[in-house]
């Protein structure tokens, strides 16, 4: 088992290297280079720029620069933000927990709602409930997350007001009201709209998947055996069938990670949630390339790590799977 995990980690190294080479050369190939702004500044002389270029190693051959950049990356030094003059690694470290909180909360809600819907739809396929859920999930799957987010802001912030106080129903920016950082209730209140926007599409997608996965499993012999020996319906569905039907879901979630992070990026941008997605969007608007490269590399690493975790979880959930 440990060697399997090790092999997966080793396999992911070339993947990360390919990504880093592509990104590094694309960023460096753009005209002007990192000192464009300095060049335009009349207060900085040409000599100073040349000295700066020499100091930053911009005159070295590109492969040498790449080697140095990679070495720095590996030791956790991602350079400084052009705009904020702060270490990129530090900026990302501040933001990661916020993104994980948002995504984690949305994911918890998704599982809590999608699993019962999937099981109930499969229990009586082609019933009224099933048709209703199929239609709703089709709608949920087709709504773009940014439109949903904007719609939630319009409805719950602009149009609807608290009838007693006239204040907004839900806040739409940041994680805490001013002067209330650390207040859990205030934080949860800020979490409602972003989490709703983020989880609707996921609920739709995973409940549909679970429904068809359950339908496959319900034909199996062990389900019939369980019924024959008089196990209660509830137990048959939630214990015998769900345990097997949920397995492919683990793989699916791992494959979906890039799009899960994409959803978070949109939601963070719309609701000014101070996570990695918002950091990335702001950096992209300001063409702050060290931040952009740092975030992409960190997210790629996170996705690969989660993939490995999902594989290991699969082996733990399904004793039939053996790793050589």
């Amino acid at each position: 088992m440990r060697t399997y995990a090790l092999r997966r980690v080793l396999q992911s190294v070339p993947i990360l290297l390919i990504i880093s080479v592509l990104l590094f050369f694309m960023v460096r190939a753009k005209p002007g280079g990192p000192l464009t702004a300095a060049r335009r500044n009349p207060n900085i002389s040409l000599e100073q720029i040349e000295a700066l270029e020499e100091k930053l190693g911009l005159n070295d051959p590109l492969p040498v620069q790449y080697g140095r950049w990679l070495g720095n990356m590996l030791s956790g030094n991602m350079g400084n933000s052009i705009k904020f003059h702060r270490p990129v690694a530090e900026m990302i470290r501040e933001r990661i927990p916020n993104t994980l909180l948002l995504v984690g909360a949305a994911f918890l809600i998704t599982l809590l709602i999608a699993i019962p819907i999937g099981v109930w739809s499969a229990r009586k396929p082609y019933s009224v409930f099933d048709y209703l859920m199929t239609t709703i999930t089709f709608i949920g799957q087709s709504i773009p997350v940014y439109w949903l987010g904007l719609g939630l802001i319009v409805i719950f912030y602009v149009l609807l007001k608290n009838p007693f106080t006239g204040s907004h129903l839900f806040p739409v920016g940041g994680m805490n009201s001013q002067g209330k950082s650390g207040d859990i209730l205030d934080f949860l209140w800020h979490l409602v709209l972003p989490v709703s926007a983020l989880s609707l599409g996921w609920i739709a997608w995973y409940s549909r998947f679970l429904r068809s996965s359950m339908l496959d499993v319900l034909h199996e012999d062990y389900v019939r055996t369980a019924r024959a020996k008089g196990v209660m319906d509830r137990r048959v569905y939630y214990k015998h069938a769900l345990r097997n039907a949920i397995l492919p879901l683990v793989t699916l979630i791992a494959l979906d990670l890039p799009s899960l992070f994409a959803g978070a990026l949109f939601v963070e941008s719309i609701f000014s949630w101070p996570g990695m997605g918002r950091l990335f969007w702001d950096a992209a608007k300001g063409r702050d390339y060290p931040v952009l490269l740092g975030v992409v590399m960190i997210t790629a690493t996170l996705i690969i790590l989660c993939n490995i975790l999902a594989d290991l979880a699969y082996g733990w959930l399904d004793p039939k799977v053996k790793y050589e």
Binding site: I19, L23, P258, S259, A262, F280, A284, L292, V295, V296
Partner: peptide, 15 residues
């Protein structure tokens, strides 16, 4: 498949 697609798309779009 492990590319954080939307991030790379934004980066490419900007670059």
């Amino acid at each position: 498949l492990t590319f954080p697609t939307i991030f790379v798309l934004i980066l490419l779009g900007a670059l």
